[in-house]
């Protein structure tokens, strides 16, 4: 049971940070929706408020770690240029995708969209967390701020969803691989 170092980083980036972020986002959206839908929501209990603030901070960290690990660790492996004369492009995912008209769209549309739209997730959720932490229970007196916060959280979820879905599909078409091999578990010979 082995995995390459690049493959493992891709798992951390996509399924670890990104996947956890999407899960957390769905929970936050439900909480924010009920808080926003009511014209005058009841004040949250102090421990509930503390929990929500910590939850949002964890989401901010996850979102930033996901985009930064994607842009500065995984993406350079994805876009690496093959040396002249290399025929096997399996270690160069971007060039592998662009080498065929049946797969080039996964880069020109999929990756081009993913690499930019993903950044909307941390920007939006940072705004949501800041407003929540700044106002706390006083946010119940600001209906329009609550509505904006809900919209930003929704955009964050959508952006992370698009980036995550495209990332998963692109990695299936042309996986990021290489680096040293990590043995996760010794297998049994049949």
């Amino acid at each position: 049971m082995e995995m390459t170092a690049r493959g493992l980083w891709t798992v951390f980036h996509g399924m670890g940070f990104g996947g956890l972020y999407l899960l957390a986002c769905s929970g936050a959206l439900v909480e924010l929706y009920f808080f926003t839908a009511s014209p005058q929501p009841p004040p949250p209990a102090p421990n509930q408020e503390r929990f929500l603030k910590a939850y949002l901070i964890a989401m901010v960290v996850l979102a930033w770690v996901a985009v930064l690990s994607g842009a500065y660790i995984v993406y350079p492996w994805y876009r690496a240029a093959p040396p002249p004369g290399v025929a096997d492009l399996s270690m160069f995912p971007q060039h592998l995708l662009l080498s065929s008209s049946t797969t080039s769209g996964w880069h020109s549309l999929g990756m081009e969209w993913k690499e930019h739209v993903a950044w909307f997730a941390p920007i939006s959720i940072t705004t949501v967390a800041f407003v929540f932490i700044r106002y706390g229970r006083d946010l119940r007196n600001h209906r329009q701020l609550r509505a904006a916060v809900l919209c930003f959280a929704l955009v964050s979820f959508l952006a992370a969803g698009v980036a995550g879905l495209l990332g998963a599909v692109i990695n299936k078409q042309a996986p990021v691989q290489g680096g040293h091999t990590i043995q996760l578990r010794a297998g049994e010979e049949k």
């Binding site: 920007i123 939006s124 940072t126 705004t127 800041f130 407003v131 700044r134 106002y135 006083d138 007196n141 600001h142 329009q144 701020l145 904006a148 916060v149 930003f152």
Partner: peptide, 15 residues
């Protein structure tokens, strides 16, 4: 009195 909304507005517009 509620906190003024300026701080939240600044975060939202800048984002």
């Amino acid at each position: 009195t509620a906190l003024p909304n300026g701080s939240g507005a600044a975060a939202i517009l800048s984002a």
